[in-house]
Simulated assay, not measured.
Amino acid sequence: MEDYSDRGLISTIALLTEGQTRRHQKGDRMAILRIEDLSGSTEAVVFRVATSGSATTSRLMHG
């Protein structure tokens, strides 16, 4: 993923091999995931983000 750090948003198909949920400092839930594909594996953190209106979405941060 380092090769793409300056290119904006990317998409991938990966296998979820591990997952944990935790609460961050504000008390909201987050997920810490281990994902892998044919080129390797990485840890990803998913935060829940409030959007306008009542809908929410998730934001993925790679590590």
Rank of each mutant, 00 (worst) to 15 (best):
K26V: 09
A55K: 05
H24V: 04
T56F: 00
D28N: 13
D28F: 06
M30K: 06
A44K: 03
V49K: 15
D28M: 07
A31Q: 04
T12D: 04
T12L: 04
T42G: 00
R7M: 08
T51K: 13
Y4G: 15
E43C: 01
D28P: 02
I32T: 13
A14Y: 00
D3N: 14
S11R: 10
S41D: 03
R29W: 10
R29E: 13
F47N: 14
E2L: 11
S41N: 03
D28S: 14
G8P: 02
E36L: 08
I35G: 07
L60K: 08
F47E: 06
M30C: 09
D3A: 12
I10D: 14
S11N: 12
S54E: 08
L16A: 09
S54N: 10
M30L: 13
T56W: 00
M30Q: 12
D3K: 13
I32C: 11
S5T: 14
R22I: 12
S52K: 09
L60M: 09
L9W: 06
L9C: 07
T17A: 01
V45H: 00
V45G: 03
A55C: 07
Q20T: 15
R48M: 13
G40V: 02
T56Y: 04
S54A: 09
D6Y: 12
R23K: 06
R59H: 08
A31H: 03
R48N: 08
L15W: 03
L16G: 10
D37Y: 10
M61E: 05
R23Q: 10
E18K: 15
S39A: 15
T51G: 09
Y4H: 14
G40K: 01
L16N: 06
E43S: 05
